[in-house]
Nucleic acid binder design. Structure first.
Length: 401
DNA sequence: TCTGGGGTCCTAGGACCC
DNA sequence: TCTGGGGTCCTAGGACCC
């Protein structure tokens, strides 16, 4: 029997959710109907569009463009700051509501998920009717609109939910792929980004149809092992399963674009320490340990580079992670101006498997553990900024730098 | 006042071992 | 004095997604 997969996507998620927040707080009008975007503060060098309203979209404003450029397109554009904790709350409410109908949902990001409808079809009836009902329920109960794509696999469901917006249900079953998907430009295919589409256009591949019918051996010369996946996608073929267990994180990172470039090793190290503390704390919250510590730098020419190191034994101790991160900075930084700093933990594990070393100081380790736990508890109680590290980094680094 | 932040996955090359 | 590959682990970098 054919699978029935749905992809559920919130329309202009951040903007819709901020609109609701503002209405809840007595705002007179709905910013979804005006020229509005969610964006960061350009003075802090966070000035890009994170989400836009439909009217703003009609003027050609796109996600990730600079606010500077967006304002050129619309003189009366209003910019609202993001509120991530509110977004996270709205996101959870949405997934809770959807889970009532099926436990088989895969959370793909803060504002989208896949639902495997195959097993609950008997219970919930015709998929299209169900989708309209679900869309209405979300609108009535939570106050925002969603798009739902219905198909025989995840890829086509994802493509379908993107067709026309907002507040729509679309299908893209296997027998509809040629009519509905093939005419689209190659950039619209999920998994084909800027770099691949540029290469494909050069090869004369302009539409999804062109890719679907392209000679596989020839494509292999340009895309190697990616080529099969690409041609399959263009033909609407995707056998990946809806993965319910999506809460096992493979890595944790924290990065910040500084409000001014840094050229001082002490300042750079202070930021690194703060970022490392944050990721370490997050790691402990998830009761995990890390094998790999990495540092990412971006210079003022926007060139990014990274170094990472695998540890002998996994750790969750702040001081150990900070130490490695600082060593990595030392080996990779050559006095260039730094625009962005990031710290990343990879190869996370649940158990602190330990190779016993003769030279290890267990008493010291116990002390460090206790210190971290104390700090975590203080943070839980009084908020993240209550405890500064020994380097006396400013409470809110993004405010100072 | 130009250009965010958090992820996952893949690849290529070098080291190292047999 | 000529000179193998296969396998695995590790690192750096890039592509892609929201």
């Amino acid at each position: 029997m054919d699978r029935i997969i749905m992809h559920i996507d919130v329309n202009n998620a951040f903007l819709s959710w901020t609109a609701i927040d503002l209405l809840n707080h007595g705002n007179k009008y709905d910013i979804r109907n005006s020229y509005a975007v969610i964006g960061g503060d350009p003075k802090m060098r966070h000035g890009i569009v994170l989400a836009k309203s439909m009217p703003a979209k009609k003027l050609g404003i796109v996600t990730a463009e600079t606010l500077f450029s967006a304002k050129k397109k619309c003189k009366s554009l209003r910019v609202y700051p993001p509120n991530y904790s509110w977004y996270s709350y709205m996101s959870k409410e949405l997934f809770k509501l959807i889970s009532k109908y099926s436990p088989d949902i895969e959370i793909a990001s803060i504002d989208e998920c896949y639902l495997d409808y195959t097993k609950v079809r008997k219970l919930n009836g015709d998929p299209i009717k169900f989708a309209y009902k679900l869309k209405k329920e979300v609108k009535d109960k939570l106050g925002f609109t969603i798009n739902i794509g219905i198909a025989n696999n995840k890829l086509c469901a994802k493509m379908a939910s993107d067709f026309s917006k907002p507040d729509k249900v679309h299908t893209l079953f296997m027998n509809e792929v040629k009519n509905k998907m093939w005419p689209l430009p190659i950039e619209d295919l999920f998994g084909v980004g800027k770099s691949s589409s540029k290469k494909l256009r050069k090869l004369g591949v302009n539409t999804i149809r062109d890719l679907a019918c392209y000679n596989p051996e020839k494509l292999y010369l340009y895309f190697k092992n990616q080529s099969k996946r690409m041609i399959d996608a263009a033909n609407g073929i995707d056998n990946t399963q809806v993965q319910v267990i999506n809460n096992i994180r493979k890595g944790i990172s924290n990065s910040i674009t500084l409000s001014r470039d840094l050229t001082d090793i002490v300042e750079i190290n202070n930021i690194v320490a703060k970022l490392a503390e944050n990721v370490a704390s997050c790691l402990r919250k998830q009761k995990q340990y890390t094998y790999v510590v990495g540092v990412i730098l971006k210079d003022n020419y926007f060139k990014s580079y990274s170094h990472q190191r695998k540890l002998k034994n996994p750790t969750n101790i702040t001081s150990e992670i900070v130490k490695v991160a600082k060593e990595l900075v030392k080996e990779m930084w050559h006095e260039e101006s730094i625009r962005l700093i990031g710290v990343r933990l990879d190869k996370l594990v649940k158990t602190p498997y330990h190779q016993v070393s003769l030279f290890e100081n267990f008493d010291n380790k116990k002390k460090e553990n206790k210190l971290d736990t104390t700090i975590d508890n203080l943070r839980k109680k009084y908020g993240n900024n209550i405890v500064g590290n020994a380097n006396k980094v400013d409470k809110n680094i993004s405010k100072k730098y």
